[in-house]
Write a protein that binds this DNA or RNA. Sequence first.
DNA 1: GGGTATTTGTCCGTATGTATT
DNA 2: AAATACATACGGACAAATACC
Lengths: 269, 269
Amino acid sequence: MASPMYRQIAEDLRAQIDAGTLEPGRQLQTELELRERYGASRNTVRDAIKLLTALGLVETKPGQGTFVVRKIDPHVTTLTTNPKTGPGGDITQDSGAARSLSDTGKPKVVFSTDPQVEIQKATTLIANALQIAEGSQVISRHQKRSINRTPWAMQTSFYPMGFVLKGADKLLLADDIGVGTVQYLADTLGLRQVGYRDWISVRTPEVTEATFFSLPPDGRVNVFEILRTGFDQTGTPIRLTITVYPTDRNQFIVNVGDVPETLSPDEQQ
Amino acid sequence: MASPMYRQIAEDLRAQIDAGTLEPGRQLQTELELRERYGASRNTVRDAIKLLTALGLVETKPGQGTFVVRKIDPHVTTLTTNPKTGPGGDITQDSGAARSLSDTGKPKVVFSTDPQVEIQKATTLIANALQIAEGSQVISRHQKRSINRTPWAMQTSFYPMGFVLKGADKLLLADDIGVGTVQYLADTLGLRQVGYRDWISVRTPEVTEATFFSLPPDGRVNVFEILRTGFDQTGTPIRLTITVYPTDRNQFIVNVGDVPETLSPDEQQ
DNA sequence: GGGTATTTGTCCGTATGTATT
DNA sequence: AAATACATACGGACAAATACC
């Protein structure tokens, strides 16, 4: 009838966390103290803590102790653009630092690395999205972004190699394209992006992603993967942008139709 | 210098899974066999398996063994509506069964339970979204949905109590409103929903959610939580719909501007 | 249905390593 | 350098779930 002891211990601790007896940031009793308190072995107590860790409620630090996690105040990205101003939809940010204000009034400093440009062969995924032949060459432009020193997103955009041959040679430069690549393609090739499609999924992070975002190696924190395909007036895809965001610090907004201005969606429930 | 043994074992097994030597669905060696193979203790082997479990690569079944996970073919929901046909945006489905075809041609049978109707006091979150006083009464309509017997989503919609007093009394019935609640409110109260805002986040599931979706109790699989606030022509919120979807079997599409018809976004990378 | 073998789950005690203060 | 606290690893025992005869 009874559930395993380690779950009962976890439940008991969880209740205290939920009730606020153990506030965020506060240190739990040490494993040895919990061992005495619950009359269990240290390994059993550790199993309980492991469960709470997997649930994202506590975190352990070697040599220090176990702590109730502080919630990160999330960054909110709006995926839709105002239809009146037209769908630019770059999500792109200049490299270097930029400032803005968060809802709570705290300043947000966004930092983007310079683009890392590569020429690659199109994978099945890329070929499908861009409607080009698998294995044909594509330009890959990769950037990393941080907000207030916290790693926030990794982004890679893919363009058909043909764009460069037709004159958009700045795509190959490992520099920012000041006006944004979408505008640049319009200026040089006359390709107007009239819309885009975002495809949103969640998966466990790759090793490189876990490293950059400082995610725990146990795959507890997942990442959003958003594939944005941009289309021109003929319905032809002109770019594929893949952006990866950790789910523990990112949220998204989608506006459809007539919607009042963003009154802060706050109250992170 | 060397990484812990249990991680090395996990890495080795992972490599075999990635390489395809161990195909999805196939059984791994038993803990005792792995113990001999790697010259480690059973507990160490178990730690390696736990890590792979947390990464979502394998699953263990008591009395049977450990298996490489089969990927669930995901269900894709489009959050945006065609602007030409107008933003209905109900996500709502009649209760009972309905049939449609998936991209792969396999039939999808969607089943929705009858709504469970309750009258509740507005929490801070609900009050903020609906711009009403905290603690004032709201109607709550809750439904559960499955696709091909697989639990797929839990949805709860909230409406201000005033709507009933003004004549929309069907909101209180634990029955489907055939035309959809959005249309029903338009018919009875003249409230036209001209747009909505979706707010997307990911969190660990509640216990009730983990139960309904048959998620592992260790919080490995997270859920999408999508808050949809619908607005009328005056910019006043008329409803709040909260839908919860497990991230392991759901993906979303957002279309902005002019976008060609949904050519299956397939290729689940 | 019952019994048995197999396999994973829980729990214990102990020893040693590593990170932090 | 020493003390503290978590991390890794071992070995053993029994329980619980499942499959098979």
